[in-house]
Computed example of a mutant assay.
Amino acid sequence: MSIRWKSLIAGLGVTVLALPGLAQARDFTIASWGGNYQDAQRSVYFAPFAKSQGDIRILEETYLGGLAQIKAMVETGNVTWDVLMIERSDLIVGCDEGLLEELDWEAVGGEDQLVPQAVHPCGAGNVVISTGFAYDPSRVKEAPKDYADFWNVEKWPGKRGLRAIPKSTLELALIADGVPLEQVYEVLATPEGLDRAFAKLDEIKPHIQFWEAGAQPVEWLAAGDVVMSTAYNGRIALANAEGRDLAFVWADHTYSIDSWAIVADSPNKELAMEFIKFANTPEPQAEFPKHIPYGPTNKQAAEMLDPTVSEMLPAGANMERSLLIDEQFWADNVDRITERWNAWIAQ
């Protein structure tokens, strides 16, 4: 079986899934992250849904994140997108600001079929994406097992790759300092806890190499520029499928969920609900990880996965020691914490 993987988002682009069929208010339009990721969605979700609806015509666009485009559509009354794949933090803010429709959960198949973390008034979580850390086994004498090892620069000398943003990074610092997963946000929400996270980062600051693009950790590990680095699980799986032999540590990984949402005032709202209902079902969700190594949110889909696929995904046993990113915490605190983060980086 050939496996296709998620790529970096390309520039803005438009693709038409040209299938003759029923007329609508305008073409049903779906916006997502582009690249191989959207190619997989087209195969698994878009084309089968179009066929199930009488070979309707679907227009695709590439979404680059944020709320600016959506806000402009809603405020001008020129809503050209119906459904989009959106990050949880933008989902929360967009829902609060009335930029996204509230879902009729009965119409989209019910809340119970999805893991609880995938359920939101304005969005249905569809994929689970993980950030753990990776290393090259050929370059270390002993395998690091957790973030305490990641911080141990005496036993594992060399640079560490960390993403150049506070979200997830501060959580990992507290985990490395011994904070239990279930207490991370309780601690981080206090001034003392925030100080503690930055103090822990101070311990390895001279050894940190900050990455911004998801491809960088793989490149740095391959070149020996870093001894270990945080990374997306999909990036490491892609590298290994292309001939690398990198190890990914699942212990205490963080994860987030991308969701399907409907733009407010969509003229195809009912059809959008039908699409989300289709995307919530177990069969396509179980098929998607065969193309891209990200986990499903449908409970039955997780049980349908082949073990050889599951071992690469944020699913099953890999979720036993994991932390869901608290997007509400970051929506409430991102400006304040980022200001401190930028000052710390500059020191």
Rank of each mutant, 00 (worst) to 15 (best):
G109F: 02
Y294W: 12
A68M: 07
F49E: 01
Q347M: 11
Y37C: 04
D90F: 02
R26Y: 04
A189F: 09
D149I: 04
N318M: 03
H253M: 11
W260V: 00
E270S: 11
E303T: 06
G178T: 12
G161M: 09
G35L: 02
S43H: 12
S256D: 12
I337F: 03
P282M: 11
A18G: 11
L221G: 05
P289R: 05
D136Q: 09
V79H: 08
S43C: 06
G66S: 06
L324Q: 10
A279I: 01
D177Q: 00
D258R: 00
R340C: 08
F278Y: 15
T308A: 13
G295S: 11
Y63T: 00
T29S: 07
L8R: 07
M85V: 10
V153Y: 02
P157N: 04
A286W: 03
E75R: 15
Y255S: 05
T281Y: 04
A68H: 06
K167E: 15
I9H: 08
N268W: 11
W344T: 06
A343K: 13
C95H: 14
K155R: 14
L170K: 02
A286L: 10
Q38W: 06
G193E: 07
T169K: 02
D202Y: 05
A251I: 01
L59I: 06
L162K: 06
A215C: 03
P284Y: 08
V79S: 07
H207W: 04
L188D: 08
P314Y: 09
S130E: 09
L99F: 09
G54Q: 07
W211Q: 12
K277E: 05
F210K: 06
D112C: 02
D136R: 13
I325H: 00
A10I: 12
A199E: 15
G65E: 00
G11L: 07
W211M: 10
A239R: 02
A301Q: 10
I30F: 13
I58P: 10
A148P: 02
D335L: 10
G243Y: 15
M85Q: 04
L103A: 15
K290G: 05
S89A: 05
E274F: 02
G77F: 03
Q53T: 05
E101Y: 06
G77L: 12
L181K: 01
V74F: 03
I262R: 14
A23R: 07
R88V: 10
M228N: 04
P157S: 01
E171F: 01
G178K: 00
W156C: 06
